[in-house]
Design a binder for these strands. Structure first.
Lengths: 116, 116
DNA sequence: CGTATGCGCAACCAAAGGTTGCCTGTTGCT
DNA sequence: AGCAACAGGCAACCTTTGGTTGCGCATACG
């Protein structure tokens, strides 16, 4: 029942800065390390490293344009990541519900038994 | 529109080992650092540290029993984490769909324009 | 044509994940 | 009661990762 997840994808999305970067890239449709760093609490170099991580995970890709490197979200890969996220969420949710059911069953059998 | 997420919760769940630990604790209903480490590719001490992280995030709690410390998932807090997971997933999904819609609109307007 | 700007590289630092080694306390068996 | 076995906590150490500063190079632009 355990969901097979791509750890690299997950850890790419696990970092709060990278999540905000994806957010910014999605809303703006693209951006460079410099423009992103202006709206984030870290330096351009830190952003550049994060972009490298996201790039290696396939979540973004860069298109050089003169002296700039414009990054944009790879929609297909990003959709895969979102799907994994929700499938893990769904699996855990189902497990929680099953446990709650079992707990209730135990409670019932305990009620129907005489005092210890 | 950006979802407010508890970074500590996320990073607790972001680690692949911790995800597997939560899985094990959920399926078994509880466990100690030693029993968990037998089923994980890391040492007992590493597991103990992870349990510390999960504990501080409120996702698990320990009940001492003799020389053992039995950890179990805190269902309420865990449910909160799952909810955050799915809400981020939903937000991203919605954003993806909106972008796809816009892309199609641009495509249409380009088709209806004469060649450049 | 020179200056400003965007980027990559290197050195360096702190925190996180992981390991080994050791010590303490509980258990359980003679 | 006494001792071996076992679970767990602590400390030292290593490596990776996220972050910084400083620098050099290339491209754009007045």
């Amino acid at each position: 029942m355990s969901v097979i997840v791509d750890d690299e994808l997950w850890s790419a999305v696990g970092d709060p800065i990278r999540r905000r970067m994806l957010d910014l890239l999605l809303t703006d449709g693209g951006g460079t390390a410099t423009t992103l760093s202006e709206r984030l609490p870290v330096t351009r170099q830190a952003v550049a490293k994060h972009l490298g991580v996201l790039d290696r995970a396939g979540l973004v890709h860069a298109t050089p344009s003169g002296r700039e490197r414009i990054y944009a979200v790879d929609e297909a890969q990003f959709a895969r990541a979102v799907a994994q996220l929700s499938s893990v969420g769904a699996a855990w949710d189902a497990r929680l519900r099953r446990i709650k059911r079992i707990a209730e069953a135990i409670q019932l059998s305990r009620d129907s038994r005489p005092e210890t």
